[in-house]
């Protein structure tokens, strides 16, 4: 034993440690890491790409909006058409988001906690709005509720206006934002299983009580996260809304549609000013989303992996 130590100076702390840089050079690098220049190139490409396609446009939006100073920027919002567009967008989001919240929780609850026939079909259907082009989603509603559509005659008879009115915009928005809440919650609830609910039931809680005191608290951060994304999409949706809206100024124009109209009229400052509002919404959403992801990573992880 003592011999081994005498012959193995490498295993003992050396009285004169060799200079650190030599050690670092000799140490083999991790097998999953690349050489320095490869990393630099990869990171550089990614950053350049981001700058060109994301940061630059974002800066352009704000730069163009402020091209003629604050006065012109602010006057874009005081204009009655702009105000009505903001109001309409908020109204649509205020109806569509709660609707999808309730539907999403109900669907996720049903899919994650129960076994029933047609479950896979339901999951597939929930995904449908993600895979269908928004324009097609809008057209579907025109075909169903338009004057020549399936219920057209009935609606005209009863003087109910769906297409080219707020109900159509709300319907199209609901359709497009359908999957956000359900898609986020299904994996989360599946992962959590049913044992806590069962425990609550054996302790005498009713199903309703168990839902409010056990299920909902367990999904609250995932729910907030998904509502945030759902809201951002509801306010920003263009394609589907554009088809059903009819672009009636001051009546059926949402913010994204208003931007398009202003832009087509060469009113760049106003167009970019309104666009900056949407961009700001996106940035705020991103900030809250990042905060939630950082703070409550575990609670939303199961669902976030899918996005």
């Amino acid at each position: 034993m003592s011999e081994a130590i005498a012959h193995g100076p490498a295993s003992l702390p050396s009285p004169n440690p060799s200079p650190a840089p030599r050690d670092a050079a000799l140490r083999p690098r991790s097998v999953v890491t690349e050489a320095g220049w490869v990393r630099a190139v990869l990171i550089g490409v990614a950053l350049a790409f981001l700058a060109l396609f994301l940061v630059l446009p974002l800066i352009t939006v704000f730069a163009q909006a402020l091209a003629k100073g604050w006065g012109a920027y602010l006057s874009a919002f005081t204009e009655p058409d702009a105000r009505s567009a903001i109001r309409l967008t908020l109204t649509v989001a205020a109806i569509a988001v709660p609707f999808n919240l309730v539907f999403g929780v109900a669907a996720a609850w049903a899919i994650a906690k129960f076994e029933f026939r047609g479950k896979n079909l339901l999951v597939t259907l929930i995904d449908l709005p993600f895979s269908v082009s928004p324009v097609v989603s809008g057209l579907i509603y025109v075909l169903v509720f338009g004057s020549n559509g399936l219920f057209g005659a009935f609606l005209i008879q009863h003087d109910i206006q769906v297409i080219f009115a707020i109900p159509g915009i709300v319907l199209a928005t609901i359709f497009v934002t359908f999957p956000f809440v359900a898609r986020q919650l299904i994996p989360l609830m599946q992962e959590q299983g049913t044992s806590e609910e069962e425990a609550a039931l054996t302790l005498g809680a009713s199903g309703w009580h168990a839902f409010w005191t056990v299920t909902l608290p367990n999904i609250r951060w995932g729910l907030l996260y998904s509502v945030l994304l759902c809201n951002a999409r509801a306010m920003g949706e263009f394609g589907a809304v554009s088809v059903v809206s009819g672009h009636i100024r001051g009546l059926t124009n949402t913010l994204p549609l208003h931007v398009e109209i202003l832009y087509n009229e060469y009113n760049f400052v106003a167009a970019f000013a309104v666009a900056s509002l949407l961009a700001g919404l996106a940035l705020v959403t991103l900030a809250i989303k990042s905060f939630l992801e950082w703070r409550y990573a575990d609670d939303i992880a199961a669902g976030a992996r899918r996005h």
Binding site: E198, T202, L203, T213
Partner: peptide, 27 residues
């Protein structure tokens, strides 16, 4: 709910968002 049974699960199934005292008081 009306059977008046106490069930203890293999993996505890405690309510994660409640304190120990609130867990015990849940029923």
């Amino acid at each position: 709910q009306q059977r008046a049974v106490g069930f203890v699960f293999q993996h505890y199934a405690l309510f994660k968002h409640l304190t120990v005292a609130d867990n015990i008081a849940y029923g």
